[in-house]
Design a protein around this nucleic acid. Structure first.
Length: 597
RNA sequence: GCGCUCGUAGCUCAACGGAUAGAGCACUUGUCUUCGGAACAAGGGGUUGUGGGUUCGAUUCCCUCCGAGCGCACCA
């Protein structure tokens, strides 16, 4: 449709003897101003020495003369010289029919399927560290990464999901120190932040992981304040590296498994299934080898300098020599240990070894890591330019807390895990009156709770920080994930009723008027496309909220299922179309759509 | 100090250089014997941080200043 209108405008201009290179066609902000709108008249008025409004009128006359498409109802000049196109009843009926044919495939496109081969994309996200709590930042990268992965799949790419975790390092030593101090035994389970131990028998991995999180916090605190403890933790750190101490090995292996299992439970809840797990300990040697190989002999062709050099006993990369906005970073410490930068280098290499035909490697992290990611990318561009061209970094804002002190509850910080559990509990409370099977209820509460959190992350552009208000908690009405799910569940029960009353969807039985929902539904594929091109899920989130609002309004003002109404079949078709768009849209955000809630 | 990101209603956020800057929350009022009230209908609330510039047109692009967040060598 878009192309049709563009061509129509082009033809009209040509007949008027006017050259126009690019024709901007957009949807007006207000539905009253038509379905498509162009500003060509204003843009070129100056060149042809005419006032925009007169020019617009001329163009419209020419368009009308060129014979209208059956899908275009009318064309008007408005405002300062806009040309607005109104689509016909038939067009909307048609678009509803199209959505019904596509079902949950609605909005699919093939921009990432070049010449019938799918583009291979790896998305790395979440990246929590074993022995540390799953915090709110991990929740953010997970929500964004999963959504981006799904959007790219919907655009024809073959996506693999990767997770990268710091399985060694000082943080592990701190946690193990804490665990040595407070071993986990039944008699001193007073150390546990004990709520109830879930589901029978022994402690769940979730509770055990919380215990490890506390141990880490204690170790981290004492590391800063107590010299003796600091020395002790440094000693533990060495033992972890060389695996020389049997007791520590045992605790390490146990703790690693517990935290990784606890993460896995969360991924399941959040709807993520990873294809690859990369571990820092394994990336380190790969990175070190690259660094060593590029000292001395290897040269940056452009500047003729060594890429890595020694400085104060450490191996550094002076990125500012290549780009004044970058800075020097240490790759190998004076103590001979590889830093995160080196491991990142190894990770990049390992990703391309794992997936040799990778077309694009996307990494999702918080923007606090932006600058050093740029330094690493610069290093990669000098060592393996072919890899650097295939790397893309999505950096998102941080989740900040406002409204009251977060520690005011149980003297605890809000971790990602506790936020999820609290939100689900809140939803469960809201559903208490429902006389459903308990298992079903808690399943739905999980879906709704996760939706509330994911939506609150994905509703705004991913670059900026988002503020989470502890006191008001995550929103469940109005502009929220549950609102989207609710409108879907509602549509679903209307469709159930239609089934019972034996009213079949009929996209041809349309009434004279065009409902506002229809004016939004056909835009879904465009929105998906934009999200895919910009790696920005929030366009979909904003779109869905608008559609949901308009559908709820339609629902409120119309009796959809009615034997008396000859247009009922059309309204049912419309409701079907809405439910497909909503379900698919939610899926792209990584949110499930329960049939009832 | 340097670099990056940002500043929109009381709060949280939208607006691919376009038309009267839009939503939700909160506040005020109305709808409840129709398919799900996690809803619908309506109302008040704005000099888009400041001052310039580019443009037919600027919340959007450029510059000044003010303010915030993040990052700037052996942590990740």
């Amino acid at each position: 449709m878009q192309d049709k209108i563009k061509n129509l405008i082009k033809d009209a201009l040509q007949n008027l003897g006017i050259e126009a290179s690019e024709i901007a066609l957009e949807h007006p902000a207000d539905l009253k101003m038509g379905d498509y709108s162009t500003n060509v008249a204003m843009a070129i008025a100056k060149n042809v020495k005419s006032n925009p409004k007169d020019l617009a009128k001329k163009i419209v006359t020419e368009i009308l003369r060129l014979n209208l498409d059956k899908y275009i109802e009318k064309v008007e000049v408005a405002g300062a010289g806009f040309i607005n196109f109104y689509l016909s009843r038939k067009f909307f009926g048609n678009s509803i029919e199209e959505i019904l044919n596509q079902g949950e495939n609605v909005g699919k496109n093939e921009i990432l399927a070049k010449e019938k081969t799918k583009e291979k994309i790896m998305v790395e996200y979440t990246d929590p560290n074993p022995f540390k709590p799953f915090h709110i930042g991990h929740l953010m990268t997970n929500a964004i990464g999963e959504s981006v992965a799904r959007i790219l799949e919907h655009s024809g790419a073959e996506v693999t999901r990767a997770n990268y975790q710091g399985d060694i390092g000082l943080h592990v030593a701190k946690a193990i120190y804490g665990l040595l101090k407070n071993p986990l035994r039944p008699e001193n389970s007073g150390h546990l932040p004990l709520g109830k131990v879930e589901e029978g028998g022994g402690e769940s991995v979730s509770v055990l992981a919380q215990h490890i999180g506390k141990a880490y916090a204690e170790g981290a605190l004492l590391y800063e304040t107590d010299e003796a403890v600091k020395a002790e933790i440094d000693e533990i750190n060495k033992k972890i590296y060389n695996r020389g101490d049997e007791k520590i090995n045992k605790i390490y292996d146990w703790g690693f498994k517990v935290t990784m299992d606890a993460f896995e439970d969360l991924y399941k809840l959040l709807g993520t299934k990873f294809d690859f797990y990369f571990l820092e300990s394994q990336m380190a040697p790969i990175g070190e080898e690259i660094v060593r190989a590029n000292m001395g002999k290897a040269r940056d062709p452009e500047h003729g300098r060594r890429i890595f050099e020694e400085s104060d006993g450490a191996v550094v990369f002076k990125a500012e020599k290549h780009d004044p906005k970058l800075h020097t970073r240490v790759f190998i410490t004076s103590g001979g240990l590889p830093t995160y930068e080196t491991k990142e280098l190894g990770l990049t290499e390992d990703k391309f070894r794992t997936e040799p035909n990778l077309d694009l490697s996307i990494i999702v992290t918080a923007n606090e890591q932006m600058d050093y990611m740029k330094v690493v990318a610069k290093a990669v561009s000098l060592i393996k330019p072919e890899h650097e061209k295939k790397m893309f970094h999505i950096s998102h804002g941080m989740m900040r807390l406002s409204g009251g002190k977060m520690s005011s509850r149980k003297g605890n910080v809000v971790t990602g895990e506790s936020l999820i559990r609290d939100t689900i509990a809140l939803i469960g409370e809201k559903m208490r009156e429902r006389d459903w099977d308990e298992k079903e209820k808690s399943k739905v509460a999980e879906m709704v709770g996760v939706a509330a959190i994911k939506y609150s992350i994905l509703r705004s552009a991913s670059g900026s920080d988002i503020v989470y208000n502890v006191e008001e908690s995550i929103s469940v009405d109005g502009d929220s994930g549950p609102y989207l799910q609710y409108s879907f569940a509602r549509a679903n029960s209307v469709l159930e009723k239609a089934k019972v009353e034996n009213i079949l969807p009929d996209p041809h039985a349309f009434p004279g008027e065009v409902f506002e929902v229809e004016k939004l539904l056909y835009k879904f594929p465009e929105v998906v496309l934009r999200s895919a091109k910009e790696y920005e899920p929030h366009y979909i989130a904003n779109y869905l909220i608008e559609v949901a609002r308009v559908f709820n309004s339609f629902y409120g003002n119309n009796l959809i299922v009615s034997k008396e109404d000859k247009n009922s079949g059309y309204k049912v078709a419309l409701t079907f179309a809405f439910s497909f768009v909503m379900k698919t849209g939610l899926y792209l955000l990584g949110i499930q759509a329960p049939a009832k809630m």
